[in-house]
């Protein structure tokens, strides 16, 4: 008799313990680097909102600066949601319109609507936001808190040196579906958890239409391929769609470069990243030590 098809569940998790662990991680990174404050870019989406809520578990609200960085086409709903988060947390906030900063660069890229051009424009915006965040972190004497989740990091659905740039990544090991349950346990407003995920880099953009699948489907596949180390055939045997599984596996491989520092040509006896290996935080690395 053939075996029952295997199940392909979403990755589960205990939100309460997860929050405890992540808040401890953030506190520890601050303590080890000698900082007390955090800066986070707040779009009003579930990722940056959850990151901000987690930050507020780790530091007093006055030590958290949420920077809202709209572009002229950004959705007004996003801004309203970001405002709601700031009011709920009672944290500090700044609004920096990136439109005048990115327009000259966008003119260089030129007109046109092709997907490659849209991606280039989106990258300019993501990298401009990074520039603003790092400048504000210097002014506010703070570390930049990352807002990348595991689903987008594994799919490479993010901008190198843009939204991926951060001093620490609190939600980088949480799939999008897990993040929603953590957000709920953190008390993130339901309207933020429930809304359609979007990078909001151009009007009408949504993650799921761009990726061509729902986050739940992507998370099931990633959890099987990455966490459970299944082969593509085993995923397909368990009922996952071959076309999508193959696309995800290819995408993970193609974007490996985004998750690692650039390779260094080894010349000397001892090379940073190859055989000069140290923890990031160690005696002498703490500010003021």
């Amino acid at each position: 008799m053939p075996a029952e098809p295997e199940s392909t569940p979403l990755p589960e998790l205990d939100p309460v313990q997860t929050i405890e662990v992540i808040a401890g991680f953030i506190r520890s990174q601050l303590e080890q680097t000698g900082f007390e404050r955090l800066v986070v870019g707040l779009s009003g989406g579930v990722d940056s909102t959850a990151a901000a809520f987690l930050a507020a578990r780790a530091v007093p609200a006055g030590n958290l600066l949420a920077v809202r960085m709209p572009y002229r086409t950004s959705s007004p709903d996003s801004e309203a949601d970001a405002q709601l988060v700031v009011e709920t947390l009672g944290c500090r906030t700044e609004r920096v319109d990136i439109t005048p900063m990115v327009e000259p660069m966008l003119q260089l890229i030129g007109p046109g609507d092709g997907p490659a051009l849209q991606v280039r424009r989106g990258n300019v915006m993501a990298r401009q936001r990074m520039i603003v965040l790092y400048d504000r972190s210097a002014a506010f004497d703070a570390l930049v808190l990352g807002t990348s989740n595991k689903t987008e990091v594994l799919l490479g659905y993010s901008t190198l040196h843009g939204d991926m740039a951060a001093a620490l990544q609190p939600i980088g090991d949480l799939y999008k579906s897990q993040l929603r349950s953590v957000a709920a346990a953190l008390g993130v407003p339901e309207r933020i958890i429930g809304k359609e995920p979007s990078a909001d880099l151009w009007p009408g953009q949504t993650d799921e239409s761009e990726l061509g699948a729902s986050y739940d489907d992507l998370d099931r596949i990633l959890f099987a391929l990455v966490d459970r180390r299944w082969t593509v055939d085993r995923c397909v045997g368990a009922g996952l769609e071959r076309r999508l599984v193959e696309w995800v596996a290819r995408r993970v491989a193609q974007t490996e470069f985004k998750r690692q520092p650039a390779p260094v040509a080894k010349i000397s006896l001892r090379t940073p990243g190859i055989d000069h290996l140290y923890p990031r935080r160690r005696p002498g690395s703490r500010r003021g030590s």
Partner: peptide, 10 residues
């Protein structure tokens, strides 16, 4: 070190 805190795997 903890892995998958609180989940069945952890």
């Amino acid at each position: 070190p903890a892995r998958a805190p609180g989940s069945a795997a952890g």
